[in-house]
Amino acid sequence: MGDMNEGGSTKKFLYLNRKAPYGTVYALESLEVVLIAAAFEQDVSLAFIDDGVYQIIQGQDTTGIGMKNFSPTFNALGDYDINKLYVEKESLDERGLTEDDLMPLVYEDEDDDWAEKPSIRVVSRAEMADLMQDQDVILSF
């Protein structure tokens, strides 16, 4: 932390995602804002709790409901240096889901010879609470 960019210091931003995709517009709006915010070179983390874990589930097929499937866009986040996607284990468990049901999202680590590494980090509810305490700004969707 503390590295300066044009016009100010870097802050820690957490985008808190609690809604399933498609039933409401929250999930899509969050992703749009995250992509816009990526241009400002802040320290960005995404949290997926409650029904928000469904946003990054594998195998989404929206042809039957006539809506755009925006889940492939999550694959692009790594290219914008957004590679901290925290998923709460308790939220997965309650919904009968496991980490294997999630999309295999990765990023290339420029500090490690561009090695491909997983962006998703499954954490406990307690760890998620600690993560929230560690932020400067929390944006809820």
């Binding site: 498609y22 469904y54 589930i57 195998g59 097929d61 039957g64 409901i65 009968g96």
Partner: peptide, 14 residues
């Protein structure tokens, strides 16, 4: 409803 299941990645066998 199958179309809503598919959008949310829920296969019939789940």
């Amino acid at each position: 409803l199958g179309a809503d299941m598919a959008a949310r990645g829920i296969p019939e066998d789940k």
